[in-house]
Computed example of a mutant assay.
Amino acid sequence: MLELSLMQILLISLYAFISDVDGLTFQMGLSNAIFAGAFTGIVVGDIKLGLAIGATLQLMGLGVATYGGASVPNYKAAAMLGTAFAAITGQSIEFAIGIAVPVGILLTHMGTLVRFVNVFFQHKAEKYADEANLTGVSRSNALCCLTWGFGAAIPVFLGLYFGSEVVGFVTDKIPVWLLTGLKVSGKILPAMGIAILMRYLPLKKFYPFMILGFAIAAFLNVSLVGVAIIGFAIAAIWLMIKNQGLQVQSQDEGGDIDD
């Protein structure tokens, strides 16, 4: 069983801190699950594993956002802990995803706690705004960002620091049927993520393209990159035909007006 060093744990925890602050400020994409999984994979020495877990969780999170203050699973932290646990135990990707998703859901409560704490700083910012104290407003907002950063880094650090003992206990003590269930759920959850994404797509209008893409991927053994290239080409052809139809229609309407 792989043991993570303290330096590896600190690096991953630091990434969790920076990525949460980035999501509130610069928004460079560091808080995406695929980047979190890739970084964790680099740290633990298996970037392929990190990319596979991060990309799967990223797919589950497509079309899901925290609009209106709604809480969604913390897929970024799930990707980091799932990648680390998979590297520690040597288990399959499906097992890691089955572990990571409940962890991500559990960490949504940490986000709720951070929101409660930040209410204090926001009230301070409002007070400073009434006093026209721009420095105080900036300081209060900066403290809110730090709270979010620590709210992400602390659970990741604790999960990784005690992870080997906890995961070792889980893999040794829990029954085989539960491990099998976690692996099965790990295979089902990506399909659920695709279903959530499809819920927001205009499939009633473009369902032939979806069927064509599924057939190409399932029966012609084409990679996802190949399917994406074919889809881009079909979309470009469809737009060209549509634009030509609009031009012909506008010309016909102009001719009718002249007559």
Rank of each mutant, 00 (worst) to 15 (best):
Q251T: 10
L106V: 01
L106Y: 03
N221F: 10
G159Q: 08
L62W: 11
L178K: 04
N141E: 05
G82Y: 04
A129D: 04
Y128T: 05
L160G: 14
N133V: 03
A217K: 14
M198A: 09
M28V: 12
K204Q: 09
D252W: 15
S140L: 00
N243R: 11
G23P: 13
L10H: 02
F209T: 13
A217R: 09
K187C: 00
F85S: 01
M198N: 06
F232C: 14
M192T: 03
G213V: 10
F219I: 07
I105E: 01
A218D: 12
S250M: 15
T180Q: 14
G163L: 00
Y75Q: 01
L158W: 12
M7F: 03
F35W: 08
P102L: 00
T40N: 00
P202D: 04
I18F: 05
P155C: 10
A153N: 09
L160R: 08
E165F: 13
D259N: 14
I9F: 14
L57Q: 06
P202K: 09
G231K: 12
I257C: 11
A152F: 09
Y75L: 06
Q122R: 11
L14K: 04
Q247K: 15
F39R: 05
I93N: 08
N243L: 13
H123R: 09
I93A: 03
D46I: 13
Y207D: 04
A218M: 12
I47N: 00
I211C: 10
M210I: 05
S5G: 08
T56I: 06
T89N: 10
H123W: 01
V248E: 13
S31C: 11
F17W: 06
A215D: 01
S5A: 01
I196K: 03
L51V: 06
I12G: 04
V176L: 14
S13A: 10
F116N: 08
G98Q: 10
L179M: 14
T135V: 06
N141G: 09
T56G: 07
V117R: 05
P175F: 01
G61Y: 01
G231L: 09
I93S: 00
M80Y: 00
M80I: 11
L134E: 07
K173N: 15
L158M: 15
W177N: 07
N133M: 02
V103H: 07
G98W: 06
S140K: 07
